[in-house]
Amino acid sequence: MEISTTKQFDLHRRMVRIRLFEEAAGRLAEANRLPGFLHLYVGEEAVASGVCGALNDDDHITSTHRGHGHLVAKGGDFNRMMAELMGKATGYCKGKGGSMHISDTSLGMLGANGIVGAGSPIAVGAAFANRYRGRGQVAVAFFGDGSTNIGAFHEAANMACALHLPIVFACENNEYGEFTPRHKTMAITDIVDRAAGYGMPGVIVDGMDVIAVHEAAVEAVERARQGGGPSLIEAKTYRYYNHHGIQNLGLKYRPDEEVATWKQRDPIFTFEDRMIENGVATREKVDEIWAELRQDIETAIQFADDSPYPTPDQIMVDVYTKSSTTIGTKS
C-alpha cells in the first residue's frame, strides 16, 4: 500500500498540530495558567495520527486521560480546545470538563476519560450502534497498556468479539502505567498476546512510525467496515513528558537515557526526513507548515485568554440530560 503525497502531508499535519498544541499546553500549565490536570501526548503523535488518518469523519473514537492528541488528530478545533483547558465558556465543554473530558461528538470523538480503561466499553457501545444503524461506521478505542489490566477492557474486548462488532482496539503501549513500568503490573510484554484470548487478530506496529501505524490502521478499519469484526493494533510508543505535563518535578521512575533514546526516533522529525529524502517535501515547505500551525496556536491561546469563564448560573446546565423518552413508553 503506497501512501499518496496528499495523505503524507495530512498525516504530518496531524502530528505537528498535536505536538504544537501539547507543548503549548505544557508551557501554560507550568505557568499556572491551566486549572486541573494535564497529560500530554508528546512523543505518541504517530499513533493517533496514523489511526485517525484512516478514519472517515463520521467514524467514532474513544479516548483516554491523555486525550488531546486523539481530538486533535480527529480534527479538533484549537480555539475550543485551548478554551476548554483554561476553563472558559467557549470551550468544548463550556469550560466545565477540562482536559480529561474533552470531546466533540460532531467529529465522532466521544470523549477523553479520566477513568483508566473506561473508554473501551464506550467504543463497543458506539460500534454496536453503528452496526445497528447500518451506516458503515467504525469505532476505535484508544487505550494504554495499563488499562488492559482493568476489567472494563476485558469485558469490552469479549463483548466486541462475541458480537463481531465493527471496532478497532488501538493500544498505545508506552511501557508505563502512570509511574510504574509495565513489567511490574503484568507478566506479558506484548498486549497483542491478549487478542487471541478473545478471538480477534492482533498485530504489533512501530508506534514511532506514522506510516507503519497507518498501514495497519487502514487494514483494521477496512476489515471492521466490511464486517470482518474486531482487531487489535498494539503501537509501541513512548511519551516524552512525565505521566502528566509538568516538567522538572524530580521524578525518577525512568532513566533519562531511556527518554533520550526514544527521542532519537521522534515520529515527526524522522517522517519529515523521509518525506524530504523522497522528494515529497522540502525543508522550506515543512518549515512553512510549522510556522502556520504555530500561528494557529497563538491565535487559540489569545482566543482562550479573551474568552469569559462560565457564570455561576451555568453550574448545573448540561450536567444531566433532558430525557425525551422513557423506556417502554412512546415519546
Binding site: 506479558i188 510484554t189 506484548d190 498485530v203 495497519a216 487494514e219
Partner: peptide, 20 residues
Amino acid sequence: PNAGKDIRRLVTPATHTSDV
C-alpha cells in the same frame, strides 16, 4: 521476541506466535 506478530496477522490468516 518480536517474531510472529506483525501486520500480516491482520491481512492474512498468518499464525500469531505468543510469548508463552
